[in-house]
Write a protein that binds this DNA or RNA. Sequence first.
DNA 1: TGAAGTTCCTATGTATACATAGAATTCGTG
DNA 2: CACGAATTCTATGTATACATAGGAACTTCA
Lengths: 235, 235
Amino acid sequence: MSSVYTETPTTGNTTPVRASERAYRQLRVEILDGFLAPGTVLLEVEQSARIGVSRTPLRAAVARLIADGLVAGRPGRGFMVTEMSLDSIRELYEVRRALEEHAARIAAERRDPAVFDALRTQFLAAPELLQHGEAGLRRYYDLIDEFDQALDDAVANPFLVGALAGVRTHLARIRRLARDNPARLRAAAVEHLLIVEAVAAGDSSLAAHATHVHLNQSLRSVLAAIQASAAEPVD
Amino acid sequence: MSSVYTETPTTGNTTPVRASERAYRQLRVEILDGFLAPGTVLLEVEQSARIGVSRTPLRAAVARLIADGLVAGRPGRGFMVTEMSLDSIRELYEVRRALEEHAARIAAERRDPAVFDALRTQFLAAPELLQHGEAGLRRYYDLIDEFDQALDDAVANPFLVGALAGVRTHLARIRRLARDNPARLRAAAVEHLLIVEAVAAGDSSLAAHATHVHLNQSLRSVLAAIQASAAEPVD
DNA sequence: TGAAGTTCCTATGTATACATAGAATTCGTG
DNA sequence: CACGAATTCTATGTATACATAGGAACTTCA
């Protein structure tokens, strides 16, 4: 979303980040990171005390989380971090397919070729990157973020970008739920490369189809990983 | 305070509709109806006094409207009902195409044939319905709502349904902006009929393509109507 | 008369006090 | 011992009081 009060690193300016904004960001990160596990009950007094804001801004934060679909409110019995069932993951991917295929198609029509040529170079190096442990993994995910950002810039459609952002929010939780395995990540890098090349070439049809294939593979991998980890004892 | 327990004349059941919910619904309807025109500035004190709730629930209501995209917040200078430019309408239809085509495709796969057979009968009668003035028009729009509902039920995907609901929210404003003309409505009824038949027959590809065609025609009509009304003096 | 500084006002952000409903617990009775 | 009702407790919903920032207008100086 929009950071109204962006940093200000140069000046020692005390940034008056709104309390509701702080609470929202913290809770959101904690939910996405899994620190607040699905099913966790959030109590206003409890959370406001923990985060260090009053109940009013905390309520605003929770309201935004509910709008995001990360939290569900019960009548009089507190709020709860939403669960991510296998079914809901399938449902999410159904929407994701619709939006990302369309986005890829549009991006191929409107893209700045230079941007996606640069991305192509990076994705070519991605498989090698993935052999450098944790740091390489983080750099890989940064590359994915860069790709998403380039796509958003290319489609230049606030409604579509917003809808995609909503999907990606839940995706972050899923990604954490199903720890990617190296083989899958290497395959994903190749799939991304194909998408990037199609977009760079302005081939909207190929971009859409490559995205379809990628998401199909991604969903299969995610579902398999979750079912496997559910069968194993928790680490 | 005063009328927290409004209505409930029939049953003795006292429904304590939350003040924030009342404020949200009222503001939402007023925005969609155009009573609160685009560009209107909403002041907390002003609106809370007008609607008859305190500032706190009104803030919650406005926050939800912002999440809906119906209201935009400025730093310290009040909130504003968002404008609907021609560009934003095109952008909205871009997302709408992605979602509704996908929804039509899925609905054709999962539908209950009986439901869409019944809708087919109603859409067959729609052109005749449209010759009965204001009442017929209202019944036609009710039919559209029924169709949307049937589609939602068929796709059975909360994420997709939610995304569609967001799109339809803005669509209601656009529909009001560009008053449909009878010729267009009759054409739209035929287009809907084709979609309904495709879904009823389980022909997902045809359902998607028919939806694409329908939305293309719809957008053309909307843009033309708005440009025409912009050229004319306001009534 | 114009421009700049200052002051005041307004609108939101936050905290807290109060109301209320629902659930759980406890006490009483059969 | 079990069942039920009442009470208490807790958590949210609402209202209001207060803090603060940003803008507009007024005044003053050149």
